[in-house]
Simulated assay, not measured.
Amino acid sequence: MPLPPPSPFHQHIALPERTALLLSMLAPWPRRGRELLVIGCGAGHVLPPLWQSGFDLSACETSPALREQARRRAPQGVEIEAASPDWLPFADNSFDWVLLRADELPPAALPAALGEACRVAACGLALTFWNSASLPWLTWRLHGRRHAWPGHCLPFWTVWRLLAARPGRLHAASCLWRPACR
């Protein structure tokens, strides 16, 4: 049986909120002349905002159908490679920055993908995922799951433990849908 379509909540509220949070978290990163690799770019929704914010982009995706959608959305000059997140065909420190979209991965693949992301990142790594304690996830679980959830959910502390075992400073942020005045 096919999955139901993603909800309007995810398409019009949660995903734009996540994109805004991502751009604010990456705001301190130098951009011009720096390359950002997006691992698990999915259908490429995040590529245009990252490009417009000044990053030189490369991306990888395992699914041929999603890669094709990402190529249609990607700005001209953005290369989208066929690569598995747990085995990247790039040399160590190939990219200044790396964005790993963990919601696009099966949870069991996260430790290997995180290791590969750290290996190819020279300056920094950002990791996005759907938090299993978030208001959108809990609402979806309570209201009958009429729509497909757009990715894998992970407990925040599981992800934090994986990151805490690596050297460097850690920053965390979360976005929840809320009225604009708050």
Rank of each mutant, 00 (worst) to 15 (best):
165 A>V: 05
130 W>H: 15
113 A>F: 07
64 P>Y: 04
9 F>N: 08
32 R>C: 09
95 F>C: 00
88 L>P: 01
11 Q>W: 03
158 T>P: 01
134 S>A: 15
84 S>A: 11
139 T>P: 04
132 S>F: 05
162 L>T: 08
134 S>M: 09
31 R>A: 06
132 S>R: 10
69 Q>T: 13
127 L>W: 01
82 A>E: 14
111 P>C: 06
114 L>F: 08
151 G>Y: 02
172 A>W: 08
152 H>A: 13
40 G>N: 09
133 A>Y: 13
2 P>E: 12
19 T>P: 07
25 M>Y: 03
163 L>S: 10
137 W>R: 12
35 E>D: 07
83 A>V: 00
88 L>H: 03
33 G>F: 03
76 Q>K: 14
9 F>R: 09
139 T>M: 12
21 L>R: 10
46 V>S: 05
8 P>Y: 07
60 C>Y: 11
150 P>F: 04
136 P>R: 00
45 H>S: 14
26 L>P: 01
176 L>C: 13
140 W>V: 03
117 A>W: 00
144 G>F: 05
12 H>L: 15
144 G>V: 06
65 A>Y: 08
136 P>E: 08
166 R>S: 03
34 R>F: 03
56 D>P: 02
93 N>F: 07
48 P>L: 09
11 Q>Y: 04
90 F>V: 04
93 N>Y: 11
116 E>R: 08
111 P>R: 05
66 L>G: 01
160 W>P: 00
134 S>I: 05
121 A>M: 02
139 T>Y: 12
69 Q>E: 14
24 S>G: 14
180 A>V: 11
87 W>S: 13
141 R>P: 04
75 P>C: 13
121 A>E: 00
80 I>P: 00
10 H>F: 12
102 A>D: 01
174 S>R: 14
24 S>I: 02
158 T>A: 14
19 T>F: 10
93 N>H: 15
71 R>E: 09
116 E>N: 10
56 D>A: 06
102 A>H: 01
101 R>P: 00
151 G>H: 00
167 P>T: 08
36 L>K: 01
128 T>E: 15
22 L>V: 10
6 P>I: 14
74 A>F: 00
149 W>T: 03
135 L>C: 13
128 T>L: 15
51 W>T: 01
119 R>D: 08
